[in-house]
Design a binder for these strands. Sequence first.
DNA 1: TTGGAAAGTCAACATCGCTGACATAAAATC
DNA 2: GATTTTATGTCAGCGATGTTGACTTTCCAA
Lengths: 170, 170
Amino acid sequence: MVMAGSAGSQGGESLLFLTDEQLRKGIEAMFFAYRAFTADPDRILENYEYGRAHHRAIHFINRQPGLTVNTLLAMLGVTKQSLNRVLRTLVDDGLVEARIGRRDKRERNLFLTERGATLERELSDAQRARMRAAYRTAGPTAVAGFREVLEAMMDPELRRYYQSMKESGA
Amino acid sequence: MVMAGSAGSQGGESLLFLTDEQLRKGIEAMFFAYRAFTADPDRILENYEYGRAHHRAIHFINRQPGLTVNTLLAMLGVTKQSLNRVLRTLVDDGLVEARIGRRDKRERNLFLTERGATLERELSDAQRARMRAAYRTAGPTAVAGFREVLEAMMDPELRRYYQSMKESGA
DNA sequence: TTGGAAAGTCAACATCGCTGACATAAAATC
DNA sequence: GATTTTATGTCAGCGATGTTGACTTTCCAA
């Protein structure tokens, strides 16, 4: 795996990528990239009366149709009061349907309506376009590394949610 | 560069990493990783009276001592009113010093005081610890890819700020 | 000297987090 | 069957952080 000629300073360990400077650059990369990552959906959401919280709810309901409020709560990492405010407007506006659970009637299973699915598509089209452009620029090897680092950065509990989504592995 | 034997399905193009599924997984990776990325500093900031906005200001003032309010404004992507509220508390609390510009006396050059530098260290120690663990787990090749994708994702204007920070390239 | 840029400030507002308290319905348990 | 626990919803209030708009002060530069 080691390219001949690229040796130079690596005398066996080569932990130069773990210097504080490299770590700080990584921190800044996360900051600036996340700003860009949310910019396009935010712009679209302004046209509706929604915010980033609505986008997140819509995203995960689309990904796991029928998921319960409690599960969504844990994924998003917010309180039920906070989520409820968001969820109520989405239900009232006819973007989300909350069906009473078949097995456990206390639960609500969440689904996107057609209108909800339409907004989801508009939002994720924009977000995927940027992601696709970045992926294409960086190439498949870089993308694999990107995913590996992000996954290693997650809290274990959240990582399980991440991995449990469709298309689990690589 | 192409490893013999890893061919399989790549008949020349192999754009499987650009499928919508892969892009959605990338989006979710960004979401969950960013949550983790901010969790440690957020926990520390609770002990003081500060929030994430204070952290960001402190971070960039530490990175570019003497930067002006206007520059910081553009980096953070917020309004001057929003930043001013944050900056005022930091100045009042003696964490940041705002020196009147030598050349242009309208400008304020921002510096961390010793107390400010102490908090910066506490915050970035925590954040770097997580980043370091993720880097170590993923390895140098993955880290390079991670940085490449994030950089490609940024808005061009923000990318220039990112690149202008110390230790610019890789 | 005048125009405009940099900075500070005040007011008002929206989003989206939070806690606390309470209600309801249904499942689970004793 | 009675009690407890769980899932959800809701109300009230608060805090951090973003926004616009309007205004002032300072001061560089044409």
